[in-house]
Structure formats: structure tokens, C-alpha cells
Nucleic acid binder design. Structure first.
Lengths: 336, 336
DNA sequence: TTGAAAGCGTTACCAT
DNA sequence: ATGGTAACGCTTTCAA
């Protein structure tokens, strides 16, 4: 059984309030006593109980994170940033995954509330506002990264999806492409809607009307990218370039293109979104729209902490996205 | 402020012990009262405090996980399995990352102990046994997945690294390769040592002596794979095949090979280790030694729970690895 | 079937 | 500078 403050008090012949003070480096304790108590504590291998402390302090120094899956590199990298930043601020992170299911997400939030986390970060939260609020009896600061829904439901951190989609498409347009396809994400994801808007805006800026035949949908994972690409390849006139909802989708699309005997970028240019750490190492290195993952994670915890300290100034923030040109794009071979 | 059991007691006109019992579905409380109390609790939006409960129950229903980085897909996938399994068993997971630094790992373990996690899982724990034990005053079950050190320090889950390295190399040998290089992991990682042993055993089984020139070292990430590959490519006689410590290294190696104008697998066969989810989607799809990631994660939490329930039968387990042949390997063009 | 009270390991306030 | 004690929100005897 763990040694408690009382055990130390007994061993050091002082009251346990003194022990508590000494261990918390209170100036109210004589240096000498303090030293002795610490000695004893160390000898006895004392480790304070965060749970007892949490109970009385009413804060757990814990941030709850819910994410659909950590198995997607983009999420993993954001979470990594969250954890690092939290650690620096002496917070720990409880990680829960929802598998993208609103039911499970709600259950996860509930569990985090029961654990009395000081704040929560939802990465691509998938529930609707009213459900979330219903669950949200305790007023625990909650910030959402890349909210799946259009509706604002509190503090959120977004990336400029429209701008990103536009940049990606403009890049392709500037290279000379005209038949540019788009593989969107799941229809319910708002960021996908926005990226597609950017895509369409860019086309229109070039006087092109978005062609429904060239717009299809994946599932944000490679598998979906493959299937979408296969559909695109079956078209009477194939696209010469393609803008994908995210890097995972792009990886799938490239796989399908290779399987069909195409070369990238000679026969098909592809642009992704996210800029996962692996992007520069793919074959070919993937041109993609970078999201500032580290910053998104860091800002999320800073936002939670600001909220926690009663700061009312906190505002939603939308971070810029940035096109990173690598090897998966080039001018089309035949200008259409 | 959160509503507590006492608030409910007041509202429902019963003692708070009764409320506690009702909420825990104790048979000692009349169905009618139970129902009424629940009603009130629901109306008041009551959410039990896991921290108070943890204090009295002396268990937190929490498993602490420490990993070097979640940014590596292999780890991410193992952790995903841990989290899923834990959830099913009504446990939550506190995630901490050590960045592969023993100092930070120790600090993380200490933090987890203070939080009184019921058990801990170290994924590729990097500290030495004695340090770990020193830290381990409370006897918290601790299981290690892929222990970095040779020494056994408790319950661990390993994969058959030697067998995996052997299978990978035998596959290459059977294809007809004779100049087979190896890019190892960081020298301090025991699993790397074992995989290399497997590699050497296979060569010897074919009457080949491992050639130090063909054995180099990465850092378990793509960057290291690139650099290692560049060294290999600078050799007077290049290898025709290469077995890499892990998939991330293989990805880097392939990148360097492509950059040098080689084709894979025509000019160079490559085999990885891990079988990350992305492996089948790479170009070419990566031949690799699969680790049973889901099972490793699941077994780890089962082991923790078994230990927790006082089961003394728990034994270290080593899971089989399995070669998955995909497109990155083929017979060498010129048999040397 | 219900209530009263002790106790989990802390912090913090009030005395001394 | 130190000790005593209440309180945090819950579970669990022990009584009634």
C-alpha cells in the first residue's frame, strides 16, 4: 500500500499538516523541519496521490482528448502536439477514441466529465451541437479542432480549408491542367465541403465550371481513395490531375493510378491535404496543403488553459494552410 | 458546480447513502425509491465523480501508457488497440510520450504513479530495469511491449523478432538474392539486434557470411532510412535487396533508391518490418514482416488486468511474426 | 429498507 | 512555525 502523508507525519514526528506544507514548499515551515520531512518522505518512497489532491483542489490537471482514430497520421501528429504542450503545462492527457461514431463520442465525453478533466479537446468532433451541450452539464472548457459540423458550438480551431482547396487547385490550373478531378471526404465532414468549395472557386476563377463527373467521394482513408480513383479512371475522358480531401485519400488514389499503369506525375498529377510527416517520403513525394498540426495542437491546449483561467477574450481561430509543392504534380503532357 | 450525491439526497428526501446505493443499483434499496432517486439524479444532470470514487475504492479504472512517440504508425496502431481493449473493459487510458528519452520516461512513470493508475503499459520502454524498479514503489502492474532492453524486467509482450528477420531474409534468398543489405534500428534497441540476428542466421543457412559493408544503421524513421540507403548505394557493388528494421526505415530507403534512379523491385527488392496499415498502399506495396499489433495491444491490457486481479499465472508472451509478401520484392535481375 | 458515520489522502483554514 | 480539523464526493460498514 502506498505511503501517505500520515505515515510520514508519524515517522517524522510532526503533524500531517506540516508534512503537507513541507512537501508543497510552504514558506511557513522551518527550513530545517522541511528538510527533515523531505528526507523521510524520500526514504519512505512517498509519491503524493493526485487523486486525493484532485478531490480537494477540484482540478485534476488533466485534459481529455477525443479523436475519431489515432491511426490516421494527421490526427496522431495533432495529438502528439497536444500531449507535448499539455505536458509542458503540467497537464496529463486522457485519450479516448470515438471511431467517428457520435454515440461513442458522447459516451467518451461523458466518461471524461466523470473523471473531472479540467478541459476537453475534440479533434474533428462528430456530434451535433445540441447533443454535446446536453452532455455538457459541468462547464468544462471544450475546444474543437476541425469541427465536423458547420455550426459553431464554442471555441474552435480551424484551418483555412477553402483557401487550401483553392491554392491546391490553382496550383494545378497554373500548371496547365484543365480536367481536374476532386475526391472529397465523407459528406458529413464540413471541412470536406469547404475544401471542395475552394476547388470550385479556383476552377471558376479560371472560367471553368465544376464538372460533377469529376467530383467523387472517398472515406478519408486510402481504401476510399482507391475506389474513387477507379471510378475516375473509368471515365471516358480521364482527368489529368486530381485534388484529394486528404493525404490518406491521395495515397489511395496514387495506388489505384499505379495499378492502372499510370505514372505520377507524368500521367496524373495529385495533390493531397494535411502534409502528414510521411508525405515527403512517398513515391513521388506528395504535393499537398499543409495544416499547421503542431500549432493546432498547441493552440488547442492554450485555449483550454486560457478558458480555465477565466479568460473571456478567447476567440475561435482559423489558421492558414499552405501549399507545399513536391513531386506529385507537373504540367499535363497534353494540354487539353 | 457539479451536483453531488448530497444534492440529490436533499432533493429526493433520502440520506445520501441511499442515493449512493440506488445509483449503484444495490439490491438493498426498494425498487420504487431507486427509480425515484434515479429520476431526480437524471433531472439534476448528475455525473458521478470518478475522482471521489477512485479515492475510496482505491482504483482509478485507468491504465497509463507510455510510448516514445505516437507519431510512428506502428505505435499508433498498437495504442489504438490498447485503447479499444481498455475501453471494452471499462478502463480509460492516460497517454504519455517519452520521446524515447529514459529521463522523460521515468518522469512519465512517476506522474502515472501519482495519478494512481491501476496498471501501466510501456510501449518500447527505454529505461533500464533498475531505474524502473526504483521508481516502482507502489506495486502497479506494468507490462512492456517490445522491451528495448534484453533484460527481462517483468511481464512483457514481444514479437518473434529473430524469426521475423529470418523469414524476411529467407524470402529474399529464395528469390535468388545474394547481396542482401540490412538497415538496422538504433543500436540500443534490442529488437533491432534480434532482427539482425535473424537476418544473419538466414544468410548463414545459405552458407553466406554476413558482410559488414552491407549492414548499416538508421534511426527507425524515414530520414535514417534515406541516409543509410545512400551509404549503401555508394558501395562499389550495390546490394540487390535490402531488409529494413521497420517500415518507416524501408520507406526512407525506397525514397533514396528512387532518388538515385533505381526501380523497385526491379533494381532493388526491399522488405520492411511492422506492416503498418499504410504498407499495402505504398508504391510499390511493401513486402514486410507483420507484427500482430492489435493482439499485442489487447494482450497487454489483458495482462495488466490479470495481474490486477491477482492472477499469478501471467507469463511473458512472444507472439509470432508473419511475412507478408507484396510488391516490393522480386528476383534479382542479374543473379550474382 | 434506510440512515449515520467512518474513512479514502489531500489541502486549507483556524488556532495556538 | 506548527497542530487540529473540516472539507472534497464518494463507498461501506454498522445500527436501527
Amino acid at each position: 500500500m502506498a505511503v501517505s502523508i500520515k505515515d510520514i507525519a508519524r515517522a517524522a514526528q510532526v503533524s500531517y499538516s506540516t508534512v503537507s506544507r513541507a512537501l508543497n514548499d510552504s514558506p511557513l515551515v522551518k527550513a530545517e523541519t522541511k528538510e527533515r520531512i523531505r528526507q523521510v518522505a524520500a526514504e519512505m518512497g512517498y509519491l503524493p496521490s493526485a487523486v486525493a489532491r484532485s478531490l480537494v483542489m477540484r482540478r485534476t490537471q488533466t485534459i481529455g482528448v477525443v479523436v475519431s482514430t489515432i491511426t490516421d497520421l494527421f490526427f496522431a501528429e495533432v495529438i502528439h502536439a497536444i500531449e507535448e504542450t499539455a505536458l509542458r503545462c503540467r497537464y496529463n492527457v486522457i485519450l479516448t477514441n470515438s471511431g467517428g461514431d457520435p454515440q461513442r463520442e458522447l459516451a467518451a465525453i461523458r466518461a471524461l466529465c466523470e473523471r473531472r478533466v479540467d478541459g476537453m479537446i475534440l479533434v474533428s468532433g462528430c456530434s451535433r451541437r445540441k447533443d454535446l451541450c446536453a452532455e455538457h452539464k459541468l462547464d468544462i472548457p471544450m475546444v474543437i479542432i476541425n469541427n465536423v459540423h458547420q455550426e459553431h458550438l464554442g471555441y474552435s480551431i480551424e484551418v483555412d480549408n477553402i483557401g487550401g482547396g483553392r491554392q491546391a487547385t490553382l496550383h494545378l490550373l497554373e500548371l496547365g491542367h484543365r480536367r481536374i478531378a476532386h475526391i472529397a471526404g465523407p459528406s458529413r465532414e464540413w471541412d470536406s465541403v469547404e475544401r471542395q468549395q475552394g476547388y470550385e472557386q479556383a476552377l471558376q476563377a479560371y472560367g471553368l465550371e465544376p464538372d460533377p463527373m469529376l467530383i467523387t467521394r472517398g472515406n478519408s482513408r486510402p481504401r476510399g481513395g482507391i475506389e474513387a480513383m477507379e471510378r475516375l479512371l473509368a471515365l471516358p475522358v480521364r482527368p489529368t490531375a486530381i485534388f484529394c480531401y486528404n493525404d490518406a485519400t491521395a495515397i489511395g488514389a496514387m495506388r489505384a493510378a499505379y495499378a492502372a499503369g499510370l505514372r505520377i506525375p507524368q500521367d496524373l498529377s495529385v495533390v493531397g491535404f494535411d502534409d502528414i510527416d510521411l508525405a515527403p517520403y512517398l513515391e513521388p513525394p506528395l504535393t499537398t496543403v499543409a495544416q499547421p498540426k503542431r500549432e493546432m495542437g498547441a493552440r488547442a491546449v492554450e485555449m483550454v488553459l486560457a478558458l480555465l483561467s477565466g479568460d473571456q477574450q478567447v476567440e475561435d481561430c482559423v489558421l492558414p494552410s499552405r501549399l507545399v509543392i513536391r513531386g506529385s504534380t507537373m504540367p499535363p503532357r497534353i494540354i487539353v
